[in-house]
Amino acid sequence: MANSIRRTAGVTATAAAVALGLAACGAAQEAGGDGDGNLLEQLQEQGSITVAFAGEIPYSWETEDGELTGATIALDREIYAAMGIDNVEGQYVDWDALIPGLNKGEYDSVSAGMSILPDRCAQASFSDPALMYTTGLMVPEGNPMGLSDLQSVIDSDAQLAVQSGTIEQGYADDLGIDNPEVVQSSQDGMAAVSSGRVDAFALTAISLRSMAEDNPDSGVEVTEAFVAEIDGVPQVSAGATVFRDENTDLLEAYNEQLDAIVSDPERFEEVVGEFGFTEAERPAEGLTTEMFCEGTDEDLQEAAEIQESK
């Protein structure tokens, strides 16, 4: 899940240690390479960049043959090629360690469709919005309870499952949904729906769709995507590529190429369409990283209006 905020139990100690070590050295860390101001030139000279990925379908993962693929990787390849960097290397990193490792200089960018969130903006710099996220519900085939969004889950008293550490878990908490089942992985969530243990599993729509397509015999379907609302505020969410704060030259060059793709529906479809992304996931013109980094109710409201009027 590109917008998930977590990543599994076993790694916690390591991640905590990394986070702690990082907090301790904090800004003092001048991260990777020499003379950082010129990271862009350096990369162009090398003709190669290393990006971190968390192995999440359909954003960025490695196939069984070891080939790096996914929507954010496809975007990266297009963009870096236009910048004169022809080779994109991947480094697998646990979700929790993506930003800490970036700041330590282990790689130069995070390509995992990470949601732009205020807490994260405090730690690193996000590119312009690359992909818009909406929420979906996985329900038993035929949608017997007629669920359409989180409000309908509350109204019909349906049993909901959410994945530990995801934005959807936060929505369920904020909406006061009673005792949702907390699953550890998206596969667990699908199993909970198909076994009849829960009535619905809430997750990023794009993740649910790709999972349902990969498992046609599981007896589940995915409802139409929606934007969750909390206290009347639409919870718009956007994924982007992450860079270190000091590499502004790289960020600006990246944004320039990204905007060229995102502002053109056909090109967007061409690059990320094969991974299940549609026009609905294309960020509208006028959406800014700042809106999501600030993330106040007004910002989200404004972002929702911009995205809707596309």
């Binding site: 905020i5 139990a9 994260r120």
Partner: peptide, 27 residues
């Protein structure tokens, strides 16, 4: 208990840490 999808305090602490990229406080 998280093995059977029940999120008790330590699981919540981990989630909180993951949300903020800082684990030391919640743990």
């Amino acid at each position: 208990l998280i093995f059977i999808h029940v999120a008790e305090m330590v699981t919540r602490a981990r989630e909180f840490g993951g949300m903020k990229f800082s684990y030391i406080e919640s743990f």
